[in-house]
């Protein structure tokens, strides 16, 4: 079987598996998995930039929050219905990624990480500053009555799960396809050796810029979906912690693998969920995981699988 056929089957299998799970899982895990799929979409967006293009951003929470607030504010104050509001959310994140991309891509390495961190911090502070509308740390709730699409109630657990699955599979299939075509190959080339890619005649800046745009927009879509599906919009989602989470999920699941973000998000979510049962210091687990991963398993779970057993893994 050719690698592309194998990866097609793998992605189809993952999506089918998630579809079947929603009828077999208990209510509690079904709710969790819906949340994880939205967060994994966020991680997929992060992975486009970090895993495939090799640019480590410490500020992706700004795109997630831009999507979330774009949708939330449009619904709350613009009185929009969910679908156009969702588009506003993605558009907000896309515009922000254009600005950040143009400015931050002038720097490389550590400076890029700090610039993204600082931009995200400014976005977080701006959200707090305009607390009258954004409700700052407290956040605001999108009422159930507003969360209806085509007569379907997005607060219904099953519909919410399927909506999350739709979002996740679109992001998964789009990025998987992207990595098979020439554009994605050039991104990987940029990650492996930027100078050589430049010398071969590729426009490195344009590719990196598009990677920021795609990554930011997917993250924004995840943020908008999170606000819509779980009905809450708040400044916490713009904080540094939410910039670190996708890094953690992607590192754990395997940077530069298509299903790594999902694997990482599932593992981390349940690890933190489990540990918060007996301690309120659950971020300790995240901290330990980060240190151990970077010390001993840089490739992450799916990266190890690819190295040992399945070199074809996309």
């Amino acid at each position: 079987m050719s690698p592309s056929a194998r990866s097609f089957l793998l992605h189809l299998g993952v999506i089918a598996g998630l579809f079947v799970l929603c009828f077999t899982l208990s209510d509690y895990h079904q709710g969790n998995l819906a949340r994880i799929m939205v967060l994994a979409t966020y991680a997929i967006g992060y992975n486009v930039l970090f895993g495939y293009t090799g640019l480590l951003s410490l500020g992706h929470a700004m795109f997630f929050a831009a999507g979330m607030y774009g949708l939330g504010l449009a619904m709350q104050y613009g009185g929009m219905s969910p679908v156009p509001a969702f588009a506003v959310g993605i558009l907000t994140a896309a515009v922000l990624s254009v600005v950040v991309g143009v400015l931050a891509l002038r720097t490389i390495g550590v400076a890029f990480m700090i610039v993204t961190l600082m931009f995200a911090q400014s976005v977080f502070l701006i959200i707090l500053y305009f607390g009258t509308w954004t409700r700052g740390d407290e956040g605001f709730v999108i009422p159930q009555a507003a969360r209806q699409v085509l007569g379907m109630d997005l607060t219904d657990p099953l519909i919410r799960y399927l909506a999350a699955l739709l979002l996740f599979s679109s992001a998964l299939l789009i990025t998987a396809r992207m990595m098979q075509v020439r554009f994605g190959r050039v991104l990987i080339a940029v990650r492996e050796n930027e100078e050589r890619t430049q010398m071969l005649g590729y426009d490195v800046f344009r590719h990196k810029f598009l990677a920021v745009l795609i990554s930011g927009s997917i993250s924004g879509a995840a943020g908008a979906a999170y606000g819509l599906l779980f009905g809450y919009v708040g400044a916490t989602f713009a904080s540094v912690q939410y910039s670190i989470f996708p890094l953690l999920w992607v590192l754990l699941g395997g940077a530069g693998t298509t299903i790594g973000p999902l694997v990482g998000a599932v593992f981390m979510f349940y690890l933190i969920d489990y540990s918060s049962g007996f301690t309120n210091a659950y971020m300790l687990i995240a901290g330990l995981a980060l240190v151990l991963l970077v010390l001993f398993a840089r490739a992450g779970i799916m990266g190890e699988v690819r190295r040992r057993w399945a070199p074809w893994l996309p």
Binding site: M113, L288, V291
Partner: peptide
């Protein structure tokens, strides 16, 4: 390594912060 140390010190940040919380 510059990038790896940033990720590691983020981890150390959370470890210290949460240890202080406990």
């Amino acid at each position: 390594d510059p990038e790896a140390t940033i990720v590691a010190t983020i981890g150390i940040l959370y470890i210290m912060q949460q240890t202080a919380l406990m």
